[in-house]
């Protein structure tokens, strides 16, 4: 997958609004593979909706979203499953981890599906992110900041053309955010993937190719 196009896209709930001032809504935007984007948003501007539309979780929008020119609305169950496994990784704002599994199991449940990373690579990520001691701890017992790092590892345990990181560092200090940003970009570069980071304030200090205001 080489590009994601948003053509005059608008959440249906915004349809009644007369003025929309946004770099994305009701615009024609193309996100390209290999580039790094930041979507800055204020609360209530539809950031979560945007992520849900791209990942295929919701379709309550006007306009078009196209992957390599193909209308995302036309994809069936099998197609979306394939996209989520191979082409589009999503780091959820609400993390969507499984609290009853350990940190390692949370990463493995994805990695076993994709068979993407050897286990020692994952163990190394734990080291790098500074939570190696939490590897076998239940995620439900970890802090949100620690959980964010587990969620990032899970998002990286698959091949992808685009990584959609929804507020990835909201609960991390500068140093941890930097480490996490580096890991994320390293993996993205290795795969030649595009990265879309969203933020409502705090965000990675990275060399963005383009910054959108939602």
């Amino acid at each position: 997958m080489n590009n994601i196009e948003l053509k005059q896209t608008l959440p249906e709930v915004f349809a009644s609004r007369s003025t929309i001032e946004s770099d994305i809504w009701r615009q024609d935007v193309t996100l390209e593979r290999g580039k790094l984007y930041l979507v800055e948003a204020s609360s209530g501007t539809g950031k979560s909706s945007l992520c849900s539309y791209i990942i295929g979780y919701r379709q309550d929008y006007q306009g078009l979203i196209r992957f390599d020119g193909r209308d995302a609305r036309s994809f069936g169950v099998g197609e979306w499953t394939r996209i989520r496994q191979r082409h589009l990784s999503h780091l959820f704002q609400e993390l969507r981890l499984f609290p009853e599994l350990t940190a390692m199991e949370n990463v493995e449940i994805k990695n076993r599906l994709t068979g993407f990373k050897p286990r020692k690579d994952i163990e190394q990520w734990f080291e790098v992110l500074g939570i190696a001691d939490k590897m076998n701890a239940k995620v439900g017992l970890m802090s949100f900041g620690q959980q964010q790092r587990v969620a990032l590892m899970r998002a990286l345990a698959q091949p992808f053309d685009f990584l959609l990181a929804d507020e990835p560092v909201s609960h991390l200090d500068e140093e941890n955010a930097r480490v996490m940003g580096e890991l994320m970009m390293e993996e993205a570069r290795r795969q030649g993937a595009g990265v879309i980071v969203t933020s409502i304030g705090k965000h990675f200090t990275l060399d963005y190719d383009r910054i959108f205001r939602l």
Partner: peptide, 13 residues
């Protein structure tokens, strides 16, 4: 919720 999450991280129905 768990089933939903599994589907969203790429598990097929």
């Amino acid at each position: 919720a768990k089933l939903q999450n599994l589907l969203l991280i790429g598990y097929s129905p």
